[in-house]
Design a protein around this nucleic acid. Structure first.
Lengths: 206, 206
DNA sequence: TCGGACGCTGGTCTTAAGACCACCGCAGTG
DNA sequence: CACTGCGGTGGTCTTAAGACCAGCGTCCGA
């Protein structure tokens, strides 16, 4: 095997990185060239070690995975997003920001190795069926489709505020707040403010 | 070294278990006698392999860590709860249910080994300062003050369900659900279901 | 036995929430 | 110019939500 795939592991939990390294070192065509515990370190490590493929956790303190994706240039390594079942909602935005695909953290080692090789070969990863609906609707239903004001109102809903409280906070009438609420509920396909608040939490709003 | 500490690793992410095993196998006085990916497996593995110390993740699908703690008997192994910075709110309830202490998942290997030995020797782990306030007030304001049914209803609120939907899911009248909602709102000091849902998310319910 | 906790249910009432109708002004675009 | 998007506001109406009154039966501990 002459074509080594250079890997960088980015996750804030050392045990995750250690576990990944333990798996990946067993593959003859992989070389783990570095690790990073947050986005800042990741950017430095990418520049320093020039990996081919980065396994990137999105949810990290400080500079997170999404920020890393957004700061990478054209000639950057391929990115596989590591996610867990409860964090899947961040994935569409990450894909849109340039990630080549994603895997669940509970993936078995053979599948992970295959994913890495697939991505390294320039192909896209096939999303699990359970994620396709989310990704199909994801870009359309994701936070960017909210107007700035709607997003602001949503953020306050996600802090548990009533319409009246929000109207006072923003210096507008309660009627205006209700309008924004009605509009944003339709956009994010939520039936009520409780669902909207939960949606906001999952999308890192508020 | 004649006194081996038998360890069981419980976490739904294989990479975490693999990483932990990689660390812990380096310690001469530790023996990793098993792994489990959820609470059910954990209970079986505890019975089968009789570990001295269990490293237990609280947040797992199906039977979770808290349930494991609640099902263990008096003569059970010592439990160290694995948590991340964002899941700290579950810790007080876990301690109350019998865990000997907790460590963050980003702990370094030496500190983890020391924690295991401390717990095995029958001592309690010292909580980091950042957690003391939470634990001091934790027992009073934490989830255990909710009745089992209230907790269940709260879990469904935190999934965005209406009272009617919850009544159908639980096979009770909507009136009953409203009663539980009224009661739980008062207990967790929330003004409405949206705040309750957010509270639930923060406390790892639902 | 009694009292409290728990789960269940009914009734009455108020109100916040949200849908859907309408309109305005401003800015940008074809 | 006409149209769209955005932010703002008013009106009407329905209903889900939640507070607070009541009651029942079961279980458990003092």
């Amino acid at each position: 095997m002459t074509d080594l795939i250079r890997l960088l592991l980015v996750d804030d939990h050392p045990v995750v990185r250690q576990g990944l390294r333990a798996y990946l070192q067993l593959e003859a065509d992989f070389e783990v060239v570095g690790e990073a515990g947050d986005g800042e370190e990741a950017l430095e490590a990418i520049a320093a070690s020039e990996p081919d493929v980065v396994l990137l956790d999105l949810k990290m303190p400080g500079v997170d995975g999404q920020s890393v994706l957004e700061r990478l240039d054209e000639g950057a390594p391929r990115i596989i997003v590591l996610t867990s079942a409860t964090d899947g909602e961040r994935v569409p935005a990450a894909i849109e920001a340039g990630a080549a695909g994603f895997v669940y953290k509970d993936i078995d080692p053979d599948a992970l190795a295959a994913a890495i090789r697939t991505v390294h070969a320039g192909q896209a990863l096939l999303a699990p069926a359970a994620m396709r609906g989310l990704m199909a609707g994801g870009s359309g239903a994701a936070a960017p489709s909210l107007t700035p004001r709607e997003r602001q109102v949503l953020g306050l809903i996600a802090k548990g505020q009533t319409n009246r409280q929000i109207s006072r906070a923003l210096g507008v009438s309660e009627k205006t707040v209700k309008t924004h609420v009605t509009n944003l509920l339709r956009r994010i396909d939520a039936a009520d403010r409780t669902q909207a608040a939960l949606w906001a939490v999952r999308h890192g709003i508020g």
